[in-house]
Design a binder for these strands. Sequence first.
RNA 1: UGCGGGAUAGCUCAGGCGGAAAGAGCAGCGGUCUCAUAAACCGAAGGUCGCGGGUUCAAAUCCCGCUCUCGCAACCA
Length: 743
Amino acid sequence: MKSFYVTTPIYYANSLPHFGHLYTTVVADCLKRHYGQRGFETCFLTGTDEHGLNIQRTAARLGRTPQEHVDYVVVEGKKFFAAFWLDEAHGGYDIWMRTSEAFHYEGAQEFWRRVAAQPTPKGRESIFKGFYEGWFCAPCGTYKTQDELSKPAGESDPPRCLIHELPVDRVSEESYFFRLSDYDEALLRLYEERPELVVPDARRNEVKSFVRGGLQDISISRLKSSVAWGIPVPGDPDHTIYIWFDALLNYITALGFGSERRRREVGAKVFEKFWPGVHLIGKDILRQHAVLWPAMLLAAGVEQPRAVVAHGMWLDPQGRKVSKTLGNMIDIELVRRHTSADVVRYVLLREKAFWQDGRLGYEIIFDRANSDLASGLGNLVSRTLTMIRRYFDGVVPSPDIPEGRRLAAKRAGVDSDALALSSSLELARDQFVQGVEGYEFNHALEALWAMIARVDKFISDVKPWELAKSEEQRETLGAVLYRSAETIRWLAVLLHPFMPESSLAIARQLGLADELEGSDPSQLKWGGLKQGTRIGEVAPLFPRIDKVKVMAEIEKELAEKEKGEQAGKSRNEQQAAPSGAHATQAAVPGAPTATDVKSAPPVQGATEAQAPPVTNTQAAQTQASAAQPEGVASFITIEDFAKVEMRVGEVLTAERVPKSDKLLRFTVDLGEAEPRQILAGIAEYYEPEKLVGRKVVVVSNLKPRKLRGFESQGMVLAASVGDEGRPVLATFTEDVPNGARLK
RNA sequence: UGCGGGAUAGCUCAGGCGGAAAGAGCAGCGGUCUCAUAAACCGAAGGUCGCGGGUUCAAAUCCCGCUCUCGCAACCA
């Protein structure tokens, strides 16, 4: 039997899942059900990534153990998904994977051993010990990511910890590395040989050009003293396996890779049956899945995935990224309560081209639901069944028009057979199946909706209510209604993976047994609906949404929620908010992450594991600012200040740095023997020519640093204004000699 | 700055190996109908196919240049 294994990323259990995660999961669910209908043996995995510093810290902040915290997130997450028919009970995922499970520890360790036992394609050891270097905050006792650090005040100043407002140290610790750099050629060969490994093409090209640019070895462990919440490195329990080298493995450990325990649990052959699977991911975690993961599998000698499929992201109605700070995230659970799970599922799959980014907002959802579902599908079902009820007493009439009535039928514009309809239905069916196979769900659905329009038109053209007035057209009328009802049956079968509940409701209204799971959509044949079938009770499938009214209600509810959260915040009880730059972000770019509060781009890519995980910066900030006077960093002494040497300088020359859109290169006279070369990232806001001759303030004792190949021997001071941090140069209104020190 | 996309009706997008009067859905306008969830059906309206050149009998479609925009990278001390 053919098998189909589909996975979503496992979501980072730091925070509760949201609408972005829902999207990927709905897609996976839809695929699983579709292939299931077609007779594939299916397995659908989703779950949670439960290790790491983030979770360790969030749990600590909430006064829980990490295990308690992830248990909580899992329970809530399952509830959230269940409301959209994604759980086992509703025929959704088969496995909710959790990386904190014992079998995963075994599998991950086994994988590590296999990698360590094999040399790289270039003949070196795949895992080696080195030193991980990062910013370390002593009071916190941990490494910090860019997101957890304030922008450094001056050149070669260390950044500061956002919690303690203190400079952090550049520290290194022993760490294991995976020699990713040795896999570049093997990977490039793989992309050539198996182009379907990374789809769509645009993403594969992106990946290829990234790999061609050379790969860096990545740190795959942390000292247990830094990150305790994780899987011990085999044979070296002082180290913990780090992030991706743990998380990615879930896709195979869930099936029993490397763990006897798990194989007993799920069946010994499950891995062999399902393994090369399809990974659905958001384009934001493409690197990890299209570079690191294949390299890891090469290293361990495990078969590559069938495909890594990267979808686009949801944006707000204005096309902006969705983020908590902008407050433009949709509360999808709220939408569901005002509509239904199926409506949400349909809109998610219909509204956006899978590969591309798409926009979503409350009104977009309601408009789509009203036009496609209420006016389209729902109305067609309603008018058809109502007529069967009214004219045929609720019994499906015969599809046949007897010889003697064919002329009459012809006069009414009805062919004696349904060939025209049935053949275009077959075409639509094939387009639909092709669309689903190609992840073009919007096209798949469009093909079906073209059929709805066609039948609507057919009904309008032949006017069954007129036919009903003439006994001579009795059979014609029956045939017309049969054709409409049979089309609806097809729709119910085809749409079942998209709208499990509504499609069943349609089937029941048609008087069919609930046999949709077993009906192979690709094998649909005209005439499956039996004459004489007694139809069920007819009720609106998709009640029209009063947009104005519902919007008003939603706004009210959101406002109330906001209030609740404010209250929660002060008690420091709010659910863990921002997620890390991790698998969590699968579907919504920088969703609730502190990352997009400002500047610092999310650390991404195969090198991500080199940076410690992101944590709850917002909460951290809240705490920190509570302890400090508003707007004031922690105090420094006069001695601290004396360390900074600031001098007046005059810009002698200024020019753009080639191949850089932000950097200007200055030579500045500081009253010294030689003018200094200083770089500044203000090219977007200042014309270099206009700066020549200008007096500026320069931090003159910063450690020199190279930027774009030029050494910067100081830093020009500027105010940072507005959200985008527009620089405004500091200057003097009176004349000042070059080199004068600011005290 | 490098690489790769994109720029087509009010909105979201199709088309695009050169050859139809340039399409669809939604919104909007006019009409028909009453089986239906104020639904459906019909009709009209709506576009310099980013800008400028070129190739050709013929260009939204091919070539060159430009502008804007998005993604990835680099970069922002």
